[in-house]
Write a protein that binds this DNA or RNA. Sequence first.
RNA 1: GCGGGCGUGAUGGAAUGGUAGACAUAUCGGACUUAAAAUCCGUGGGCCGUAUGGCCGUGUGGGUUCGAGUCCCACCGCCCGCACCA
Length: 852
Amino acid sequence: MSRYDPATLEPKWQAAWEDANVFLAEPSADKPKYYVLEMFPYPSGRIHIGHVRNYTMGDVIARYKLATGHSVLHPMGFDAFGMPAENAAMASGGHPADWTYANIDTMVAQMKPLGFGLDWSRMFATCDPEYYGQQQALFLDFLEKGLVYRKNAVVNWDPVDMTVLANEQVIDGKGWRSGAEVERRELTQWFFKISDYSEELLDALDGLDDWPAKVKLMQANWIGKSRGLQFRFATQDAPEGFDSLEMYTTRPDTFLGATFAAIAADHPLARALAEQNSEIAAFCEECRKGATNEEALEKAEKIGFDTGVTVVNPFQPDRALPVFIANFVLMDYGTGAIYGCPAHDQRDFEFAKKYGLDIVDVFVAETDGVPVSTEAYVPDKDVIVRYLRALAGPEVMTSYEAIDHAIGRCEADGVGEGVTRFRLRDWGLSRQRYWGCPIPVVHCPTCGVVPEKKENLPIELPRDVDISIPGNPLDRHPTWRNCTCPKCGGAAQRETDTMDTFVDSSWYFARFTAPHADTPTDPEAAAYWMNVDQYIGGIEHAILHLLYSRFFARAMHICGHLPETAKEPFNALFTQGMVTHAIFQTRDGEGRPVYHYPEDVDLRDGKGFLADGTEVEIIPSAKMSKSKNNVVDPVAIISQYGADTARWFVLSDSPPERDVEWTAAGAEAAYKHLGRVWILCDRIAQMDKDAAGTGDEDLMRAMHKTIFDVTNGVESFGFNAAIAKLYAFTNTLSKSQASYAAQRQAVMTLAQLMAPMTPHLAEDIWAHQGGEGLVAQAAWPVADEAMLVEDTVTLPIQINGKRKSEIVVPKDASKEEVEKIALADDAVVKALAGGQPKKLIVVPGRIVNVVL
RNA sequence: GCGGGCGUGAUGGAAUGGUAGACAUAUCGGACUUAAAAUCCGUGGGCCGUAUGGCCGUGUGGGUUCGAGUCCCACCGCCCGCACCA
């Protein structure tokens, strides 16, 4: 043994762990359990360095928990349904299943050399019939409990390809393949009743102490609870049956600034008017153009059509407001009708300018009597409250109280009432696609929609489908949809829609507790392993995936698949950042960017050059993208440096919640450091075993301090800081003149502390020093508190808040003693020039501040 | 557009409201070498100074505090999400 050779030692230790079944998750009566889970990957084809970062973080936790005496569950699987498989099949002529399973095989083969402590015996893919069959069983249970229902909803429709498009397939309002302008079209679809749980999902966020505050805030905003006034505006010149229009508002300050009303193209009134007037009908069609996503709707040019109908605001009986049909009002939100206050809302202001509507400024007193003219005046809270108090009386202190005041008035007059609303909409799960979990229901001409019998599950996807043309292959399959009605036994048709892939990922964490059970979960296993103690994944899942999973856990509890305690399935959540990489680009003759691979770029003094000497532009920290040629392939990194270097680097350079930029220099540095640690270990192993030395005590103090710091770092996701402490301790150890016994203890402890991050190297050091068994199974070192405290502390002295000097005082010195020593300090004496300080602040153990 | 976040040396970053820049990389200087690489030692925010040291400094502008990278307000820039991408 003479050099660090990861290519040899890594497979060796991986085999050793496997032989010893180190990571097989087994319930234990006398150990606490710990379930650590990283968001499972989509089988895109190859693992990405971002996966390496994600699973390394989870692995650090898993290995640490194992070392601290837990029974650990750390599983891996694949989120395997979805559009990319269909797209790949369309492009290559293959089959989505073949593509998916081949990718899974490749990715597993790429993951194993990274040495993750995973229980591979629990692996599954969501496209396995064993998995999605249980998902169908869940669907049937939800249906029975009223947690799923059918209603109409709007989808993106490509009129040329005659197919439904996902939002990502809509580019600038046009279909990605056909280029045709996308239309909004209504289909009957299945929905989960997540909105029934709005209040609960919101309230329960309070109990999620180990979730990032920002994720909880984003979810709270997404659920969007509001208390407002729902009130009726009496109509004039409206078709029969439309005596009034219902509006909802949370903004009492805009009541009197209202100058127009707008309704959705799908509002019943708009539909009624369209029947009578072809111009209105044409306009409504126009409004239905464009994508369904909120961002597109918000950014789209606002257009309106004056219907000739007017309404009267109950707060302003003498003013008739024109009613427009407008493309920015959606039937799904609120009542499908709004009133506009142009003076105090920029969007309404622009609409009013465009259509020549009145602008009534109710805050004119706040703007020195100058009314709104070029843009809306949006008042801040204090201004609103002052205004409302003047309007409604001195008891009004908040906007909320003003709403209550208005509610009272409207209820007395019979024109409105208080309503609590949520922004959260029900979760539409129907997808008109092949590669997903079939929805297990049957459409019977006599019985209507009938749930499939559980004994017929799984309803498997047919293998023989034609993927090559747009549309749902299940829909046009010659025989698959033909079946018998589970109720009457007559000829019937299967539902051909499949489920949103978010359904697949909303309960996989529960399935991991009993991946082979013939029910969705095994109650005993679920009771033992749930909840997920630590969940780790990207911030991009902050809202949808995590909210859906929280809903699913509740629904599964209602159906008896999860215990009450698992209603919040993730005890702690950590959202990690991306791995980025610089883009190296030059420009072609027309100024278009040309992207260069990192291996073609020579970096010198922060500049990059091609082989011919051309300087390239470096765009740092860009998201990795195949088209930008800046993707780092973990497989190449492992073959060059080994898994431990990759693991060490992705943890070391940035805080885990932030993005980390992959650099060749950084990877090289990590590799060199691991090599130095190995050589250090080797040197200590060759020392004279009886060698005495100096500085044993100092080395042991440094060791215990490092144990303390690294333990804290691992516990609190401060991996980068923990690694910095390990660097410092390595430096200390390599300079140490301590005895062999002390140095051996230090290097073995170093190996233990590094083991969660660089497990292979740690095992090698452990074995090299004659350690017993595997370091993966050794107990985590414990810091000796007595070794952490020094006898004296150095306190900085500030004069007027600026550091000027420092003093050394005994660690248990009283405040008075510290004051005395501080006042005797040369710098303080000089600054005081014989006078007395105005104030003397002593923070024991921390700092002294002398105020002159 | 709406919601959320981030901003510290040349670079990645460290810092329970208490010594800003730990640790690492680049650079520069030195040792070793015929030389280079590797390795080791040192330097490593800016300005002034031979130096002891001094002044400035955490995106910008204000505020709170004995003390602000950290807390509050406004602004600028970048990133993420927006319900059929996973």
